[in-house]
Amino acid sequence: MCFWKKAVFPFLVVCIVALLLVISRINPQLFGQGWGLIALVIIVAAIILFYWRFEQRKASSREVAVVAVLGTIAAAGRIPFAVFPSIQPVTFIVIVSGYIFGPQAGFMAGSTAALVSNFFLGQGPWTPWQMLAWGLAGASAGLMGKYFPTAGKTCMTLFCVVWGYLFGWILNLWTWAGFINPLNWQSFVATCAASFWFDTFHAAGNAVFYLFFGPSFIKILRRYHRKLKVVFLPDANCAHFPHG
């Protein structure tokens, strides 16, 4: 019963997206030229589902505070590096956070960093895409930490490089889906080619950050991750007098 109650919300979200897709097939003109609206709906639905999943689990005050602080550090990291084009430590900080604290904390830190930094740097149509891209970077790093906890420096550096390009490609989707015609692989390649140097700088920056500071960041975060796991032992007096 509890499972069904919990499954209602994600089921409704998926149904709404599916309904929009069906309507777009029946009457393509209804949603206008391109896939801008449908793509935005899918992205927002994906973010809502990730947040909904986080709401469902029990999180301690320490977990909430650490996730908020990690998201803020990643967001604040955008400011001193604003002078370097596309070289920002956000992706690196989010990946390292996800790797240590797990997929959900990684997603929350990444999406929080995007949303909060844009309150100050300017919200734009790129915000939901940045939230999803950085969130996925954190979540995938969390999975990496879960299934490959002994991943070495080379492996993690490559992971950071890959996310430098993936982040750019995910962000390219909003211009491609909403403003480009025709929507084929040639036009997507052209859109990615337009941002190639920015993505390359981003990927190179991630690799440099990880090579120089990855191990020290991981050491610090691992120490705080251990501090999160506090177990309250039953009080000896209460154990003797449970009703007292």
């Binding site: 709401e55 999180a59 909430v64 929080t112 909060v116 309150f119």
Partner: peptide, 14 residues
């Protein structure tokens, strides 16, 4: 509530 709290904290801390 938890998401709003995280975002509020981060907005304050930034």
């Amino acid at each position: 509530s938890k998401t709003a709290l995280i975002l509020s904290l981060a907005t304050r801390l930034f």
